[in-house]
Design a protein around this nucleic acid. Structure first.
Lengths: 104, 104
DNA sequence: AATAATTTTTCACTTAAAGTGAAATTAAAT
DNA sequence: ATTTAATTTCACTTTAAGTGAAAAATTATT
C-alpha cells in the first residue's frame, strides 16, 4: 500500500498500534526521536517511523536503555541504531544543537 | 597485595573509591548485584567486586542501562556480563527467586 | 560491665526521567 | 461563523535510583 518511507499514518493510529499514548509520541518528538511529516498541522508517520518507534520501545523495555542513551547512540551514529533509525531523525541531530539539553 | 577475589576492602573504602554513597552499595546488595563477604557484621569487597561495580556504573551512565536490565543480563548469563560479573553474584541468581521482584 | 564508637538497618524522603490527563489554544472543516 | 479535531501547555503521577538521619545492633575501649 504505502512504501516504507511514505509518511501516511496519523498519530492516533500509530499510538494505537504501538499501544502508547499519543502524548508519548509528542514527547519523543521534543527530542527529535521521531520526525513525522506535517500536512496542515496534522502529523503523519511512515512505516519506518513505526518500526523505529517499536525498536525504541524494545531498547527501553527489553534492553533497559533510556531515552538519553538512545540519543547518544544516534549522535554517535552507532551501527545498531543507524540500520533502524530513519534518515530524517539522524539528520535532525546534524546541527549539534543537542536536542535533550534544553530540557535536562 | 590482595588477589582479585580476596574480599578485603571495607564498604567505606569501596564507596569512596567509586565515588558513591555507601547506602548505594547496600541498595545494590538488595538486588544481589554485589555479594560482599561478612566477617562479624562488617562487609568486605574484593578487587573483582570493585571493578564489577565500576562496570555497573559504566553501563548505567555511559550506556544508559538501568539496574533491572543489568539483572536481566545476569539471569540470561549474557557474555558481556559474565566476563565481568563475579561468580558469587551469578550464583546468587541460580535460585530463580528473582531478586528484583520483591521490590518492584 | 559500662560506655563509646562504628556499622548496619529502617524509614521516609528527594530527585529525575518518562509518561499522562485535562483544559486551552489553534487550525481545519462544514 | 460555528463546530470539530489535533495540538500545545501545564501541572500532575509514577517509578527507579539514590540518600539523610535516626534507631538498632555490634564491636571496641576504658
Amino acid at each position: 500500500m504505502f512504501n516504507n518511507t511514505d509518511k501516511s499514518y496519523p498519530i492516533e493510529l500509530v499510538a494505537d498500534f504501538l499501544g502508547v499514548n499519543s502524548r508519548t509520541l509528542y514527547y519523543y518528538e521534543r527530542f527529535s526521536l521521531v520526525c513525522p511529516a506535517r500536512r496542515g498541522r496534522k502529523r503523519y508517520y511512515s512505516k519506518q517511523d513505526i518500526s523505529w518507534l517499536e525498536y525504541i520501545r524494545e531498547l527501553m523495555y527489553d534492553q533497559g536503555m533510556n531515552l538519553r542513551s538512545i540519543i547518544v547512540l544516534i549522535k554517535r551514529r552507532d551501527n545498531v541504531i543507524l540500520t533502524r533509525c530513519p534518515e530524517d531523525v539522524v539528520n535532525s541531530f546534524k546541527n549539534y544543537l543537542m536536542k535533550m539539553d534544553d530540557y535536562f
